[in-house]
């Protein structure tokens, strides 16, 4: 791959505690355009908390997150989104009272700053581009179903389409394939990898499925009890004895 590694997102010494419990303790890493970076770790390691710190949903106790040099800490989620950071949630969050297509249309409307419209029906605006995005994630056939009735794996795909709708440069995906069948899982990871190649997207994702991680990630970060204990290529991480003891060892 011939890409100029550009530092997209620079995370320095991010810390956050809940009560007395340190959920994230001094995490630093760099995410480059073209990266498909996996953040792995056992349950409760602090992965989702990391994501919430990155997209502004939680405020870190200390540390910094810079996107192309701009400090993100302290900005509300919607600002960070507007700067080009999209995300999907571990516990899916979509607009249950809208159809699949309308969910994506909302994001497109928001991006075009057309949300304050009081006149033209929302359902008629940006429908074509929304359908194109749904086509991409394989949800076009269900475009007019209410989002509230979809299967879990399908909601995850809608979330991906919604995240892509704002044409982000950084994409944060918290367990994007949870609840999917193995074949679907593979397809979604391949789609993600394709987007990374095509658009030079910088993707950070968490995953419990090791095939997804080691089959697709360009680099892997290992988090344990809030601290990064290993970082490197999938092969390096797989071979790391510390990782095997805290994480892979536990699974074997």
């Amino acid at each position: 791959m011939s890409k100029l590694p550009m530092s997209k997102l620079v995370v320095r010494d991010l810390q956050r505690s809940f009560g007395g419990v340190q959920a994230v303790g001094g995490v630093s890493f760099t995410l480059r355009s073209g990266d498909l970076l996996a953040l792995i770790g056992p349950n409760g390691a602090g992965k989702s908390t990391c994501f919430n710190l990155l997209n502004g949903q939680l405020r870190p106790d200390s540390g910094s997150v810079r996107l192309d040099g701009t400090e993100l800490v302290g900005l509300p989620p919607r600002r960070i989104w507007a700067l080009g950071v999209g995300r999907t949630f571990q516990i899916t969050a979509t607009f249950a009272s809208m159809t699949v297509a309308e969910n994506v249309q909302m994001v497109l409307l928001s991006r075009a700053r057309r949300l304050f419209g009081l006149w033209r029906p929302a359902a008629l605006q940006f429908r074509e581009p929304a359908l194109a995005l749904l086509e991409r994630v394989g949800m076009a056939a269900q475009a007019d179903r209410p989002c509230g009735v979809l299967a879990y794996g399908d909601v995850k795909r809608v979330e991906l389409a919604m995240a892509l709708a704002s044409e982000p440069t950084v994409l944060l995906m918290d367990e994007p394939t949870a609840g999917m069948a193995p074949a679907e899982r593979l397809a979604l990871m391949e789609l993600t990898a394709e987007l990374v190649r095509e658009r030079g997207l910088a993707v950070l994702f968490t995953e419990h499925d090791m095939d997804a991680v080691f089959g697709h990630a360009t680099r892997v970060l290992v988090l344990d009890r809030g601290r990064l204990i290993a970082e490197g290529s999938p092969d390096q991480v797989r071979a790391d004895p510390r990782v095997q003891s805290v994480y892979l060892g536990g699974e074997a």
Binding site: Q57, R78, W81, F89, M106, L109, L115, F116
Partner: peptide, 20 residues
């Protein structure tokens, strides 16, 4: 119109709404 949809979006999932 988008206004009413945005209102519903906030009701359905404030989290998602803020993050888009």
């Amino acid at each position: 119109a988008p206004f009413g949809y945005a209102l519903r979006a906030g009701r359905d999932s404030g989290l998602r709404a803020e993050s888009v």
